[in-house]
Amino acid sequence: MTTTPRPKLVTALLLAPAGLFFVFLLLAPLAVVLLFSFGERAPAGGYVPAFTLQNYMDLPARGKAFFNTLTLAPFGTLLTALFAFPMAYFLAVKTSPGWRVALLILVMAPFWTSQLLRYYAWMMILGNKGIPGWLATLGIADVRIINTPWAVLIGAVYGFLPLMVPPIYVSLEKLDKRLLEASADLGATPIRTFLQVTLPLALPGVATGSMLVFILLMGDYILPQFLGGGKVFFIGNALVDLFLQSRNWPFGAAVSVALVAIMFVTIYVYMRFVLSKSGTRRAALV
């Protein structure tokens, strides 16, 4: 009976890299962060072991950062999805297979240049010689975009489209075109077919893309720093300051734990909601 342990061993070996990765690069650091969050800031900055809940009680001091992040991240995700869907739809449904690859590459192309360079470009596009300057020549003066939440949202849509388009594209591409014909055959107008068939069946892709974007946006600090000009303050910015500037590691750890907890709960609720509502859990897997 030497045959049964062997597949188990093989399975264990195959899972080992991912498992080790998970334990050492995710769980272990999280444990350290949790530990630090109960400590105290050393006089010169850093961490001294202690057990206090003070850091958690101080969380309201970053209330504005939490508020900004928890409003702008979902809104930015929604906007990105709204822009990505038509693009993905066009690619998956309206484009000939030959063009599809080329256009998909174009969608991804911005990822090939430095993120900083792209944000600098946007600083100029949204700055007063960019779009506001154009608008001024049309007689619409004093439009302010850069260093406002809108600039951050524009940057989010631009920056995260390449992450949102592919999952939606895949779910639309997988979508059986005969279902659309069946819907039309049963009397549904094109708009109703879109709302009743295309959209629900693409929801798993939208959910996947939204999760990716939402998680990245929740933790982002470069985007608010560059396009928000330090006037749009995210939790990520608060964390950078706490860890690298004021070096209040325990408080930073507490803010991190709160961020991770909020993300976890949000994602859980969202996935439950989307998947149960659309009833596509099974369809998404098939």
């Binding site: 005969r178 014909e181 039309a184 055959d185 049963l186 077919t193 068939v197």
Partner: peptide
Amino acid sequence: VPAYRRPVNMVFQHYALFPHL
């Protein structure tokens, strides 16, 4: 006249049932 305005219905080869319904 497009399909959705014709009084005929079709049974598709692979049925094309809506998986989300």
